[in-house]
Simulated assay, not measured.
Amino acid sequence: MDALTVCPGEGNSLALSDLPEPEPGPGELLVEGLEVGVCGTDKEIAGGEYGWAPPGREQLVIGHESLGRVRQAPQDSGFSEGDLVAAVVRRPDPVPCGACARGEFDMCRNGRYTERGIKELDGFASRLWCVEADYAVRLDPGLREVGVLTEPTTVVAKAWEQIRLVGERSWFEPRRVLVTGAGPIGLLAALLGTQQGLEVHVLDQVTTGAKPDAVKALGAEYHHGSAKDVAARLNPEVVIEATGAPSVVFDAMSGTAAYGIVCLTGVSPAGRSLSVDAGALNRDLVLENDVVIGSVNANLRHYQQAARALAEADTGWLRNLITRRVPLDRFAEAFTTEPDDIKVTITLD
């Protein structure tokens, strides 16, 4: 069968390979791959900057943003032939740490977890793939065109959960949220904010096109000024930072209302210096009881939350987030960024 593979650590090794069809093990689903999303992590792996092949192998099947249809399911698995599914990316470490032992493997303490399509486990960019029934989530049949957005939605479902957990250490009724970045993560964070009835604002650099249109279609407000000025004007109780740009991160941290919560979901590049008034930042954090948290990955609970959020969303709006679909045999096009891209996917069927 066709599968998109890479040799982690080697640039320009992304290739379409002919691999044996997988055989499901006990408790596993056999799934027909329909679509995979391409994100920054995939591009880093393809560029040789990141990723680990399965033990004893040089190649890794890439792709962690999955969408498939069940071809074969074990009895009593809770799944049936024809079900639309997405697969959980991370698996707990074998030791396990305290968090992994309790199903919170997105919070693994010792780093020995594995991840489909990223770290030591094959991903989903193949015509067929297998997944343990306990690590699959059934999607509403109406999500066939947009279910590939499940994994990025889990990232923001977890972010919102963490924000609520932190906020509820005291009285917490936020009204206004600022999302910095209008890529897939930022726009999906805005979606979940509107689903909670919040006043949502989104900041990005572009002034026209698909991103501002998507924000306005949510009933949210789009901004393209400096993060410092926008945050100071809005004084949001919550900021979800989805750019990873260091200057935006610190500007957002300095512009929240008292008891403000900043959730960082974008990973900043290392090796870049930035001058920051650390004293003033520390003073504001302490005197206003502010909190800055990082959030990455997701566990099964967040996949279930994401599936519900997508089922409740306007399918037409979600469809507009997928700005390009590329066939598997033209995979290279999916790893080349175009100006109007929001989410690019690779079709497998």
Rank of each mutant, 00 (worst) to 15 (best):
Ala15Ile: 02
Gly40Phe: 08
Glu23Ala: 15
Gly51Cys: 11
Ser17Ile: 00
Pro54Ser: 04
Thr5Trp: 00
Glu21Cys: 07
Gly56Ile: 05
Ala15Asp: 10
Pro22Gln: 08
Asn12Val: 00
Thr41Cys: 11
Val6Glu: 05
Glu21Arg: 14
Val36His: 07
Ser13Met: 08
Ala15Met: 10
Ala3Trp: 03
Gly25Tyr: 04
Ala3Leu: 05
Pro8Asn: 05
Ala46Cys: 08
Trp52Ala: 12
Gly9Pro: 12
Glu21Pro: 01
Gly56Tyr: 06
Asn12Cys: 02
Leu4Ala: 01
Leu14Cys: 04
Glu10Gln: 15
Ser17Asn: 10
Cys7Gln: 11
Glu44Arg: 15
Gly47Val: 02
Ala15Cys: 14
Gly56His: 06
Pro55Ile: 03
Thr41Pro: 11
Gly11Arg: 15
Asp18Gln: 07
Gly47Arg: 08
Pro22Trp: 03
Gly47His: 09
Thr5Cys: 14
Glu35Phe: 07
Pro26Ser: 13
Asp18Glu: 11
Cys39Glu: 09
Cys39Gln: 02
Asn12Gln: 15
Leu19Asp: 02
Leu19Lys: 13
Tyr50Cys: 00
Pro54Asn: 06
Ala15Ser: 15
Glu35Gly: 05
Ala3Cys: 08
Thr5Gln: 11
Cys39Phe: 06
Asn12Pro: 01
Cys7Met: 09
Leu34Lys: 13
Pro8Gln: 03
Pro22His: 09
Glu44Pro: 01
Glu35Asp: 14
Leu19Asn: 06
Lys43Val: 12
Ala46Tyr: 09
Arg57Glu: 15
Val36Gly: 09
Gly56Glu: 08
Leu34Pro: 04
Ala3Ile: 06
Glu32Leu: 05
Gly27Pro: 10
Glu10Phe: 07
Leu30Asp: 14
Gly9Glu: 07
Pro54Arg: 02
Gly11Ser: 14
Gly37Lys: 02
Cys7Tyr: 02
Asp42Cys: 12
Ala15Gly: 13
Leu16Gly: 03
Ser13Tyr: 08
Arg57Met: 12
Val6Met: 09
